Simulated assay, not measured.
Amino acid sequence: MFDWFVKMVMACWRPVKRYRKRQDGTDRQDPLLWSKDLCPHAVGEFSYAVVQANAILEDMSQVESGSFGTFVGIYDGHGGPEASRCINESLFSFVQKNTADQGGMSCDVLCKAFKEVEDKFFEIVRKAWDVKPQIAAVGSCCLVGAIWDSKLYVASLGDSRAVLGSFSRDTSLPVARQISTEHNASIEAIREELFAKHEDDPQIVVLKHGVWRVKGIIQISRSIGDFYLKRAEFNRPPLIARFRLPEPLKRPVISAEPECNVITLGPDDEFVIFASDGLWEHLSSKEAVDIVYSQPRAGIARRLIKAALQKAATKREMRYSDLKGIERGIRRHFHDDITVVVLYLDTKLLNKGGSISNHVSVKCANDMPKGDNPSR
């Protein structure tokens, strides 16, 4: 049975290096949008899509699947792609190692992997500081979902979001349930958390140009990287002035500690939407779930992104067709990089467990070789 699954996945994703080319998933009307309509994973099917807005794509993502279940990662970088790339290249291997050490999946497995990837990126920053000090201001949100023995483990830091779409037997309507925690200073509970942790600093959160920011600089309160806000040795020249705090950094003002939730999946749970905050800036959780519930599976991630882009265009009083013609870099003034993975669940397969060491990699398009990057 597993051999059949391996063949199916490999056939669906071969050859990996071609996924960013037009004939293998790029939208012909929008050269910055590419996707894969539908592929199998251990407990169902999934669809993904990516749209680029920045001059260099900072979103990274991955789907890993096999007899153990399924692993999804959404890594929304900022300040540059180095942190999200580091996470994309190493986080799952840490999860594999920790799962083997502990004999199964747990929140501790995921949280430990987050710490290990934070430590790994710190070493990259430390070694590069003298020649590339700006790397100290590079960071990434990190959202992970792992299905193991009919349970879904969701660990997150930053403001990417996972939403569970379920069927209500009472109303016969879809129900949207946010199952990840967002760490963004625009949320009152996050501001209260920051003030409680930094009682001696009334400027820990500042309203700047109508936006709440930690120290008036960054919106998220947790991330991988951003060491200029975690370690005093990086909050000094030659880092450019706009990233430096006016007072010495006595302790970290943001953290890399994720929050983890565990959901026991049941027969009414139909799919999970994992997406970077660029999607949620334009669509609510309910709107996204309603779209997934009412539309065909194939290409659903692409439809979600197009719905968000349509709203982005409308907000700027322009046509969607005009937005599609705007180049990367300039496009960032209208919307962010957006990555979406929609994971459909087959309850008949949920109880089949296994070893995470026996897996098939089904990485998403924004993890392809640089030579096939449409931004280059």
Score class of each variant (00 low, 15 high):
Val63Arg: 02
Glu327Leu: 05
Pro258Ser: 05
Phe68Cys: 11
Ser357Cys: 05
Tyr153Arg: 07
Ser140Lys: 02
Gln96Gly: 08
Ser47Pro: 07
Ala365Gln: 12
Ser180Leu: 00
Gln29Glu: 15
Gly353Trp: 10
Asp27Val: 03
Gly210Gln: 05
Ala55Met: 13
Asp367Gln: 10
Ile220Cys: 05
Asn358Arg: 04
His335Cys: 13
Glu118Gln: 08
Ile263Lys: 09
Cys364Val: 11
Ala49Cys: 13
Phe94Val: 10
Ile190Ala: 10
Ser294Pro: 04
Asp269Thr: 01
Asp367Ile: 00
Pro202Tyr: 08
Ser172Gln: 12
Trp4Arg: 15
Ile204His: 00
Glu118Asn: 03
Arg169Phe: 05
Asp130Arg: 14
Gln102Glu: 13
Asp336Gln: 05
Lys115Ser: 08
Gly353Ser: 12
Asn184Leu: 00
Glu82Gly: 01
Lys370Glu: 13
Glu317Ser: 15
Lys21Val: 15
Ser93Leu: 14
Ser106Ala: 02
Glu281Met: 13
Ala185Ile: 09
Lys127Ala: 13
Lys151Thr: 07
Asp277Trp: 03
Asn358Ser: 10
Glu193Tyr: 06
Leu164Glu: 03
Val272Pro: 06
Ile254Glu: 01
Asn373Gly: 09
Gly353Ile: 12
Ala185Trp: 07
Leu152Val: 06
His333Trp: 15
Met60Phe: 15
Phe121Leu: 07
Phe334Val: 09
Lys197Asp: 12
Gln295Phe: 14
Leu152Trp: 01
Ala313Gln: 02
Gly44Glu: 01
Leu57Ile: 13
Leu173His: 09
Asp3Ser: 11
Gly371His: 04
Arg328Leu: 06
Gln102Trp: 06
Glu247Asp: 09
Tyr75Arg: 05
Lys363Val: 15
